[in-house]
Design a protein around this nucleic acid. Structure first.
Lengths: 180, 180
DNA sequence: AAAGATTGAATAATCAATCTTT
DNA sequence: AAAGATTGATTATTCAATCTTT
């Protein structure tokens, strides 16, 4: 029997007799697609946004969130919750944005523990200029790959995954029916 | 007219008269869902894999790629191309994996510029133990959120995006019909 | 000269304290 | 004590050299 196992891979498969093809389980393929598609997609957006607007994707994410919020301000903890940044990661990102005068910090009058991150005029100008460019870059990719119907299906499937895995972002800390 | 613009947001929208709702363009929502779903999904997988198998997701990714390859070995540059790591990022990751005796480096006999990353027995044991756990964790998320048909749709949509945005990964450097 | 891999130096992310306010 | 934010120290990532081999 060992004579047929000419490489280590075969031995591994035989070692788990009940699930001989676990290494190629469809869920692993799905997860792999997710990771690869995200890396490729985000990587291209990052490069393009850097080239055209001189903006790191992380900065775009933060500025975008602020410009979409009434008053152009958000508490540090809320801003962190609504981006891919951790609390300390956001502190440092805002340090950098503040150094470039795109964002400023303001004290929260009602709770002196909190700090607002507020878009400056320069920050507003910067993100306002970047948004149409970014939308066009998204359009160039997404409209090329998907039909309008497929785009809706994909968005719905992604939203459901996000809501299931990260219930806090979906439910709390955002107004009802604000859907990104 | 300015009397109605009670906050900065309104002014921004008026400033771009041709595209008044670019900030809420559906493509931005789709991209946002993609980023948020990926962050939530990958974050949970990372935490769970860390807790149950004491493996960083990055290590899992590398070991998985090696165990799925005949001979359990891959040249550094190919391994980098098939993961989310850069060339220098992979060099450092393999340094760490080698220090834990999960991977070893071997010279390539046919081209002395190349180096193989090879799974050790300990590495094989480690990833073999982790795979069923990981599949179960994937199952717990994906089967909860999606029907089997939806899972197929999602996988197909993701694959098409990856192939469109990162043609090199899809085409070259991998055997035909190896599909993750 | 170009491919393959690695390294140094600079930048960024992370995790456990820390400090203030509630 | 717990929430909100920040900091120090460690670790990881990145980018442009560097070195060897083709």
């Amino acid at each position: 029997m060992l004579a047929f196992a000419t490489n280590i891979c075969s031995l591994v498969l035989m070692g788990t007799a009940e699930t001989p093809d676990l290494l190629h389980h469809p869920h692993i393929t799905t997860a792999g697609m997710f990771v690869e598609a995200h890396a490729a997609f985000a990587g291209r957006l990052e490069r393009q946004l850097e080239q055209t607007c001189d903006l790191p994707l992380q900065w775009f994410e933060v500025l975008m969130r602020l410009v979409r919020t009434p008053g152009h301000r958000l508490r540090m903890s809320d801003l962190a919750a609504q981006t891919t940044l951790s609390a300390s990661g956001l502190t440092r990102a805002i340090d950098r944005l503040e150094a470039c005068d795109l964002v400023r910090r303001e004290a929260c009058p009602s709770d002196r523990r909190s700090t607002y991150a507020v878009l400056t005029e320069a920050g507003e100008a910067r993100i306002s200029a970047a948004v149409p460019v970014h939308v066009e870059q998204l359009r160039a990719i997404l409209d090329d790959v998907y039909s309008p119907a497929e785009l809706e299906v994909l968005t719905d499937l992604l939203r459901r995954l996000r809501d299931a895995v990260n219930p806090c972002v979906a439910a709390a800390s955002r107004p009802p029916s604000d859907d990104d």
